[in-house]
């Protein structure tokens, strides 16, 4: 965990769900299935968030299945055309979640698939940030990014803006504190 403990994105990434099967009946946990007063029966398929599933799987209480967003269909799509897959709608923390899963679910292919997809999509993200002043409509592509990629897009975009400001000597001006700027315009 380390530094991730305080990271909002890490917390949200660990909320992603994994299909799980309990190996035994769990008393009092029927509500996971929608039955309030019943115990959870063994081998029922339920979706558990990663923060629960990790510990339970490592201690052999549950068996896991690979979430759909890492399944065959998505893999084939990613192989065929990495830049046209909408990762944002599959799972908003696709890469971070994927990296966490690698330690839980044995799958020899997954690490390479994630890395290849990331590498294939990165140049396009970079490209778009550098040319954002052309004002062509890229909203469809931006919606298809996962959070990690959105963060990169934002960073790229900010660096372009900062560069432009430096060009116009705006960087040497002293500015009003950001919290006050909104007040002034009101």
């Amino acid at each position: 965990m380390g530094d991730e403990y305080w990271d909002l994105d890490a917390i949200l990434a660990e909320q992603q769900k994994l299909p799980s099967f309990f190996r035994m009946d769990v008393p009092g946990y029927g509500f996971l299935e929608g039955n309030l007063d019943v115990d959870l029966a063994a081998n029922t398929r339920i979706e558990l968030p990663y923060w629960l599933a990790e510990h339970l799987a490592l201690n052999d209480y549950i068996d896991l299945e690979l979430p759909k967003c890492f399944g065959h269909r998505v893999r084939n799509d990613l192989n065929a055309s990495p830049t046209s897959v909408n990762l944002g709608s599959l799972c908003s923390y696709y890469y971070r979640f994927g990296v966490k899963i690698i330690n839980l679910v044995v799958d020899a292919m997954l690490p390479d698939i994630l890395a290849d997809a990331f590498i294939a999509r990165l140049p396009l993200i970079m490209d778009y940030t550098q040319t954002s002043r052309l004002r062509t409509d890229r909203s469809e592509f931006i919606y298809s990014l996962d959070e990690t990629e959105k963060e990169l897009y934002k960073t790229g975009h900010e660096s372009v803006t900062a560069m432009a400001q430096w060009d116009q000597r705006k960087a040497v001006r002293i500015h009003t504190a950001e919290v006050l700027r909104r007040e002034r315009t009101m």
Partner: peptide, 12 residues
């Protein structure tokens, strides 16, 4: 074991 699992989940 079932109770241990429940306790673990509460703890988590």
């Amino acid at each position: 074991t079932g109770l241990t699992a429940a306790a673990t989940m509460h703890h988590l």
